[in-house]
Design a protein around this nucleic acid. Sequence first.
DNA 1: ATTTTGTTGTGAAAGCTTTCACAACATCAT
DNA 2: ATGATGTTGTGAAAGCTTTCACAACAAAAT
Lengths: 215, 215
Amino acid sequence: MPKLKRISESTISRLSRYYRALVQLDKDNYETVSSKDLANLEHLTPAQVRKDLSFFGSFGTRGLGYPVRELKDKIARILGVDQEWNVALVGIGNIGSALVSYKEFARQGFKIKLLFDNDQRKIGSNHKGIVIRDVANLTRELKDNHIEIVVIAVPPQQAQAVCDDIVKADVKAILNFAPINLKVPKGVSLRNENMAMELEHLSFCLVNDHYCEQG
Amino acid sequence: MPKLKRISESTISRLSRYYRALVQLDKDNYETVSSKDLANLEHLTPAQVRKDLSFFGSFGTRGLGYPVRELKDKIARILGVDQEWNVALVGIGNIGSALVSYKEFARQGFKIKLLFDNDQRKIGSNHKGIVIRDVANLTRELKDNHIEIVVIAVPPQQAQAVCDDIVKADVKAILNFAPINLKVPKGVSLRNENMAMELEHLSFCLVNDHYCEQG
DNA sequence: ATTTTGTTGTGAAAGCTTTCACAACATCAT
DNA sequence: ATGATGTTGTGAAAGCTTTCACAACAAAAT
């Protein structure tokens, strides 16, 4: 039985941070970087950097550090940002509209291909060059257009129904902005962006600063 | 020496989830709720619910469960959402604009009082009833208006400078949307919303589904 | 009264993540 | 060559979080 080591959520998140740092280091023409430097850039510990990277292989040279360009490319491959992904966005309200214009996405290979809404006044209209489709046809259109990632930006009451339609289209990755816990079957990856929750975390820290020792 | 038990980030996040569930239960006129029910609602375990709550006191009755209304109010107090907070928003671009209109914030007691930008064309103009101020005066205006929480929605290159000005105004809570690791002094709480990172997490799971056993 | 059923609060166990510490190398200076 | 310095990769230790398991209690049934 091949021992399947589970990888922690935090390691994946840190991988994103290493990647961002490496992109910058490469731009600045650094050839190599030590775990210590990389740790300093992202306010982590050298041991953590090494442990995280060692999970995926031995990328460094003892005495020297890691080759910047090579490590960047390796992490890009691991994160899947060396390729393009077809993204659809459901719910063209305040947040949805903002995401369509968010340059960071396209730059990283996440291409917004389809937009959906349930508002008859919006359906059929053009939004930044993309036509808004009827959410009633969500499942079929996601399938037909080979969408791989869907962003949910609808009100919480509609989110689970939308989510179910997305799952029916065999989409395996969902980013949810609705403040609700979506239920997805095993095999579907779900990430939540919950701004209300983050603000509550901050107000908790303001009220209970003795519990929130941080810096 | 009073033993200062540290509270985990995850416990605080779950507290937000319990709160959301309790608000709904209260609306639906439930009088009591068991740790089992609360766990089911948020896809957690009963033991975790009890452990989390026990951190802040004994709120339940053995054999019966927790009184919904009372527990909701207690958690509201703990989270600091039983009061209003003065919020400022820096950077009125795509995301910033969306946040101004985001109803969820105001509903939870987070009142956006000031808007800032560095674009001369925007400064002085009205945005949804709030005048946009010059970010050059950030520190002074935050102080004068007793702002307690600031949201950063500026491009990454400007984020650290903006952050430093916020810290100078003695603001102790910052929500950052810029894809960069901000450095803040001890005593200042910082939360990050990094959408690019969440998408990278999803593409990681698409590429490495064997590591991402979830559901 | 006594038993049955249900649920909390919590110490202990299990599981997971981070940090430590050092052997194993690579490079450079002499 | 040899020694000095620097850095990785990793097993073991420490620390943290979640889950287990059960005594303690409350309410309802008999």
